[in-house]
């Protein structure tokens, strides 16, 4: 889950279904969620999609925060 879960509306253990307009990009999605920090995004298991990647209906999007310390 991580800190990003707080940005998800009605999240169920870090997962949520989002309704986006047609031709929304990853950047649009992050905008809608108000996520401003840098993240790694994987679409349907395919990692490192750019911000301008256009999402399709039913896509599973994984957003991972980048903090590397600990």
């Amino acid at each position: 889950m991580g800190p990003l879960v707080d940005f998800l509306p009605n999240s169920d253990r870090g997962k949520a279904v989002l309704n986006l307009t047609n031709n929304s990009t990853i950047a649009d999605m992050l905008d809608k969620l108000k996520i401003k920090q840098r993240v790694v995004v994987a679409v349907n298991g395919d990692e490192e999609k750019g911000l301008d990647h256009i999402l399709s209906d039913g896509d599973e999007v994984l957003v991972i925060s980048l903090v590397s310390g600990g």
Partner: peptide
């Protein structure tokens, strides 16, 4: 700050 470094376990 809110979740600290433990917030990265699941990611």
């Amino acid at each position: 700050g809110k979740y600290g470094t433990p917030g990265v376990c699941s990611p």
